[in-house]
């Protein structure tokens, strides 16, 4: 069974892009446009990895992460931060990687592969 990735970002174009990129590379994906929907989807979908934007309307990425940590099924799920904010590598200290927009897709795929195969 293919590995599952949940993509959280407020920009639909970027959701589209990441979704196509991961699907093309053999992953199963779901997308969420904000932190609240992201949490809902995560409970249901139980992803193997989450990519998370930092600056989004409503609740920001770090808040999502704190809430996610309180859910037993999700708290060990690796998170990759994908954000345009500089200094994003410190926003979520426990993230396995922080990638700056615009990112190099080969690099992103390598990180994902290393994390979940």
């Amino acid at each position: 069974m293919s590995k599952k990735i949940l993509i959280i970002d407020d920009d639909p174009n970027i959701l589209d892009y990441l979704s196509a990129l991961f699907t093309d590379n053999g992953y199963d994906t779901q997308v969420a446009p904000d932190a609240v929907k992201g949490l809902e989807t995560a409970r249901r979908f139980l992803p193997d990895l989450i990519t998370l934007d930092i600056e989004m309307p409503g609740e920001w990425g770090p808040r999502f992460y704190r809430q996610m940590m309180q859910i037993k099924e999700l708290k060990n799920t690796p998170v990759i931060v994908i954000s345009g904010l500089s200094g994003n590598e410190h926003a979520i200290p426990k993230a396995i990687a922080a990638v700056k927009k615009p990112f190099d897709r080969e690099e992103l795929l390598r990180i994902v592969k290393e994390a979940i195969g």
């Binding site: 920009d11 174009n13 970027i14 589209d16 892009y17 990441l18 196509a20 990129l21 345009g84 700056k100 927009k101 615009p102 990112f103 897709r105």
Partner: peptide, 9 residues
């Protein structure tokens, strides 16, 4: 940065 990423996409 968002636009450039979307353009990449």
């Amino acid at each position: 940065k968002g636009m450039l990423t979307a353009l990449d996409g």
